[in-house]
Simulated scan of single mutants.
Amino acid sequence: MKNVYTWAAKPAKRSTTVGDLKAAKGKRKFTQVTANTTDEASAAEKAGFDMIIANAKNVIPVREGSKNLFLTAALVLNEYVTADDIMCGAFKALENGADAVMTPRSMDIVEMLAKEDVPVMGHLGLVPRKSTWIGGLRAVGKTANEAYELFQKFKRLEDAGAFSAECEVIPENVMGEISKRTDIVTVSLGSGRNADVMYLFMEDICGDTENPPRHSKAYGNLLKLRNEIKVERVKALKAFKKDSMAGKFPSKKQSSNLDKNQFEEFLNQLD
């Protein structure tokens, strides 16, 4: 654990820091998972993850669940629109306990944040919310020209001051060559094993989605458990209604009565 001061000027301990991530580039792998609730963050810490990423609005409950993991706050496109929104959102997230922010916005926005020493993770490759520009959801860098254009974006992101980038659905061999040629800490989301950080969504790892992306792998089956809960809930409600209509609920166990003498006195008072 490393001793740090948070952006709220409070002493804290972190499993890793920006400095650690940069120093370890190309030497060791890290792991990252999404966490947007206290329970999810707690599970990630207990499982030994190095990093978690949460929507900026969820930083407070996430930090309650994990006091020590490196936490990145995602500044969602449609929730932080203007430059002022982004700057205020970034500093609020950091004040609430985040260690870095992630933005899929322009190089100018990244540079704006980096100039204030905010640790910034960019987003390159497939950015789903911008997928219309590339003809839909697909891998990015599947031709030599597109791969080279992607590499140039990494270098521009590096020049803008980002310390890291979420690298989404990039061919593994392209990702490997780019990662070797940039100082940016590369975080692979569907981009193979040749990045610095291995990353998947919590729901994909835990098997909690009906239509998982091709690059994901389920290591659990929470969806089955959730569906069983739905069935059990309806079953219980139906049984309650049936017993209620048949006069079987409530039984003596769920009810209480005055003793005989007190009840007779009560009836006398009523009369």
Rank of each mutant, 00 (worst) to 15 (best):
Glu40Val: 00
Ala47Val: 11
Ala73Ile: 00
Lys153His: 15
Ser251Phe: 06
Ala98Met: 04
Gly176Glu: 02
Ala43Gly: 08
Val81Ser: 02
Gly141Pro: 09
Ala47Pro: 14
Gly207Asp: 05
Glu166Asp: 10
Phe151Ile: 03
Glu232Ser: 14
Phe154Gly: 07
Asn68Ser: 13
Glu168Lys: 04
Ile52Gln: 00
Gln269Tyr: 13
Gly161Cys: 10
Lys230Trp: 07
Arg14Ala: 02
Lys241Val: 14
His215Leu: 04
Ala9Ile: 10
Trp133Cys: 02
Ala246Arg: 06
Asn261Ile: 15
Ala12Asn: 03
Glu265Arg: 11
Glu228Cys: 14
Met245Thr: 11
Lys253Ile: 14
Cys206Lys: 08
Val118Gly: 00
Leu21Lys: 02
Thr186Ser: 15
Asp208Phe: 14
Gln254Trp: 10
Gly190Glu: 03
Gly141Thr: 03
Leu267Thr: 12
Ala239Pro: 03
Asp259Val: 04
Lys248Thr: 08
Thr209Asp: 00
Asp259Thr: 07
Ala218Gly: 05
Gly161Ala: 09
Arg193Glu: 06
Phe91Thr: 05
Thr82Met: 09
Asn268Cys: 07
Val169Asn: 06
Leu113Cys: 01
Ile52Asp: 00
Ser42Arg: 15
Asn68Gly: 04
Glu264Trp: 09
Gly125Cys: 12
Leu71Gly: 00
Leu200Ile: 03
Phe91Met: 07
Ala139Arg: 09
Asn55Leu: 11
Tyr199Lys: 01
Ala56Ser: 15
Asn194Ile: 12
Thr103Lys: 05
Lys13Tyr: 10
Glu79Lys: 10
Lys142His: 07
Gln32Cys: 14
Asp259Ser: 10
Thr34Glu: 06
Lys2Tyr: 11
Glu64Asp: 08
Gly135Lys: 06
Glu172Gly: 05
Glu95Pro: 00
Ala9Asp: 13
Ala44Glu: 01
Asp50Ser: 13
Lys248Tyr: 03
Ala56Trp: 08
Ala195Cys: 15
Met107Trp: 03
Leu258Glu: 07
Ala41Glu: 00
Thr82His: 11
Asp159Asn: 11
Leu157Asn: 04
